[in-house]
Each structure stands twice: as C-alpha cells, then as structure tokens.
Design a protein around this nucleic acid. Sequence first.
DNA 1: TTCTTGTCACCTAGGTGTTAATAT
DNA 2: ATATTAACACCTAGGTGACAAGAA
Lengths: 240, 240
Amino acid sequence: SVQLEMKALWDEFNQLGTEMIVTKAGRRMFPTFQVKIFGMDPMADYMLLMDFVPVDDKRYRQGAAAHPGLRLRVPSPSDRYAFHSSSWLVAGKADPATPGRVHYHPDSPAKGAQWMKQIVSFDKLKLTNNLLDDNGHIILNSMHRYQPRFHVVYVDPRKDSEKYAEENFKTFVFEETRFTAVTAYQNHRITQLKIASNPFAKGFRDCDPEDWPRNHRPGALPLMSAFARSRNPVSSPAHQ
Amino acid sequence: SVQLEMKALWDEFNQLGTEMIVTKAGRRMFPTFQVKIFGMDPMADYMLLMDFVPVDDKRYRQGAAAHPGLRLRVPSPSDRYAFHSSSWLVAGKADPATPGRVHYHPDSPAKGAQWMKQIVSFDKLKLTNNLLDDNGHIILNSMHRYQPRFHVVYVDPRKDSEKYAEENFKTFVFEETRFTAVTAYQNHRITQLKIASNPFAKGFRDCDPEDWPRNHRPGALPLMSAFARSRNPVSSPAHQ
DNA sequence: TTCTTGTCACCTAGGTGTTAATAT
DNA sequence: ATATTAACACCTAGGTGACAAGAA
C-alpha cells in the first residue's frame, strides 16, 4: 500500500485548483509528489515510476468572452481550459496527445527494504511543454489537466518475466494531486499558496518575518496556516 | 579495471604532499575520488565502497625543535607527522587506531552497466576527526597519513555466497591519492593549490577574474596552470 | 607552542515567482 | 487579447579557506 505525503497541503491546493508551471527547461512540481510505501518484499527488486494522464479531452483558451456558450459545457476527458475571473472554463478540444513519457525514480531498481525505509520523493521529476525535450522530462500541454499516477513494478527474477508483466505492477492514483499545466499562474490564490508554502519562494512573502515564528504551534503547517485561515471558501473552481 | 579521474590534479597535489581537512561535522575530500570502471558484467549487481588505511604507524607533532633526533628517522607504517618549515617530520608513534569505517557509494548496489556508463564520484564521502561521529563519516586521526582504497564487491546471487566472499571483491589502490589528515592546512602551497583548483574556494582567488579566461588553452587545467608554472620543485616533502 | 574549534564572508548550484518583451 | 519566453532578484542548501578564540 502507498500513503501520499503532505496530503494536507495537496488538499489545500486541490481545493483551489492546483496549477503546475511548465517551462522549456523543465520545472519541478510543487508540492513534490512523495509517498511512503508499505508491504513490499524487502529482498525483492522494484522499479518506481510516474506518468501523467489527461483528465479530460478538451483544450482551454482564456478567450472565455469569445466562447460564451462553453461556460455551461460539462468537462469531459482531455479538455483545454481557460481561467476567467475566478474559475476554469472549457475552451475547446484537447491538443494532440503529447508523447506519453514516464519518469523512473532515479534510485530504481532497488530492494523493497530500501524503498520502505524512508519517504520516496520524486523531486527530480520536471515538467516541460517542449515537445522536442531531450532531457527526459515529462512533456505536458499547457492549459490541460493531468492526473499523476504512481507505478510500482516488481522486477521478476524469472527468465520469462515478460509473460507476467501484467501481474507484476501496481498503479496508485491520488486524485488530490490532479493539476492544470500552465506557463504562468492563472489563479492568484494558487500563486499565494505556492509562495506561502514553497521554501524557494520565500523571497516573495510579505508577512513580517519576525512575527509568526514566535507564536507558532508545533505540528501545524506554519507557512500556509495564515493563508488557510483567510481562504474564501465561496467560489470553488469549475472543475471541482 | 579502474581508471582514476583527475589524475593530473591528484599528481600535482601529491607532489606537494596532499592534505585533507578533517572537521567535527565532516569535510569532503578535494580532489574528489572519482573513477571510471571497465569490464564489469553489465547485468550483475555490485557494491562500490572506499576505506582508508594508515600509511605508517607514527604520530606527528609540530614540535620538531623538541624532537631533533627524529629528523633523520625513516617513516614506517602509521606515523604521526609534523610540518616544519617546508617538510613533514615524524613526531612519534601513531595514535590508537580509529574505527575502520567504510563508505559505501550511495548508489550501491547497482548493475555493472549503471556503474560503467558514467564516472563514479565519491563526492558524498566526508572525513571527520570526531571519534563519536554518528553520521557515518570516515573517522581519521589528524596529523596522520592515509591511503584511500577503492573496493568493488560482486553481489553473488548464490545462496551460500558468504563462502565465496574472498573471490567476490577486488581492491584498487592509487598511491597518488595518499594524503595527510589535518585540521588546518600546514603547507601553504597546498592551500594555494586548493584555492586555485576547487570551485568552492573561488572567493579566495586573487588573480584577475577578467584575465585568464581569455587566452585559455583548451585541454589544460586552467585553474591550476598558473600555479603549476610557478611551483618550486626543489624542496620535496619528507615522505616522498 | 601547537593543534583544534566555531564563525564568517564568499562562493557553487539550482529552485522561486516577477516582469517585460515577444509570439501566436 | 491571450499565451509563452527569457532575464532577473531573491531565496535554499551547502562547500570553501580565513580568522580569532580556545584547548592541550
């Protein structure tokens, strides 16, 4: 079994409609996809990998005013989206499918004992919108929604292991990790939550740096708690 | 077979009498021990590791004037040394042996193909003089000389693999990687060569940063070439 | 006196959102 | 008008020797 790490943070993003930046050079995900794994054979070898599947089949454009009829359209697999005012809108059929790359965890293959003894972090995984990328990054279409998937592959020691490929892997999907790929953030609340929770964006925080470290309740997620408190739960994104 | 990377740099240090800093928190080696490996079974698993053996059995003290008779002493295994004026002198019997720790390359175990397809770098290895270190660092005695050793262990798939332990590993020793462990540099030439060749010490370089990048001969080691030119080959360290 | 320790400024290396310019 | 790109300031994270103070 697999347990998603930082689930509370993922949930907080998911409630706003998670966005992940894609760049030509490749951008890491935030939050980082991290899991705890249980129930492996400690002595057996496993490969761990991730891939990303389109949530729907449409393509989005910000020209919501130019496509007023689309506002009531029910999203279906592989939609293209536009963010207008405070919610995402369907903006057309999806762009042609991107090469369905996978990302092997760089420690693969490794023994079950190794994978289970600590949190497995996919912090080397990068997202790109460059169809010609040759760095092995995950290629996604901007303004499309994706579902990350996590796969565990048992390395079968039998010589005819190909025959058992079907039964030698298991896939785990956490719906709270869904996101829209973007080249620039569309929802300002997402931007603020990223700034509040990602240590590398600390330079953009405007809160008093002398203030909250003092009366900080251990166990809480301090960086985003202030933001969570002020969150407006009224206007939920369209795709929720 | 194994090929030492950056051998020219190691040679340059070795001619001066390489020194490696040891600290309580642990200090990386510079140069970093890196090798290219050939002739592995691409499909087999191997563990790669390093350890450090005393070159001699003496202990050194800087009180060379207090031990004038020792100046002519021939170094023997596990000596303690002192650096006086421009050379190292034997300063007494070695301190009690330190715990003989080993450092496994963090990618271990991995397939031969994996190890051979790129340079293997031991840049996570750190040296400490803290006998109570619990970070898994290599523990060395300051003012003692050590010989790094590189070991390749074949992971035998047979169930009674313990029986074959003797024949399942191979050790490689590069004498040019010998060094004296120190808490502060003794030979100012070593300091200068470290500053000239270690990118992390760039802040201590006094050469014109606009000067040498221009008329730089490709293939040479630019950072230390100026230093190599001005090196005085007359007074060679005592232990050479 | 000799050796060790801790702090520091100054680097490398690379992950952030911002911003202005540029495509489309 | 919308979407993308590239340069940038500002961070995290951590590897340098210098230096002053401390220990043996």
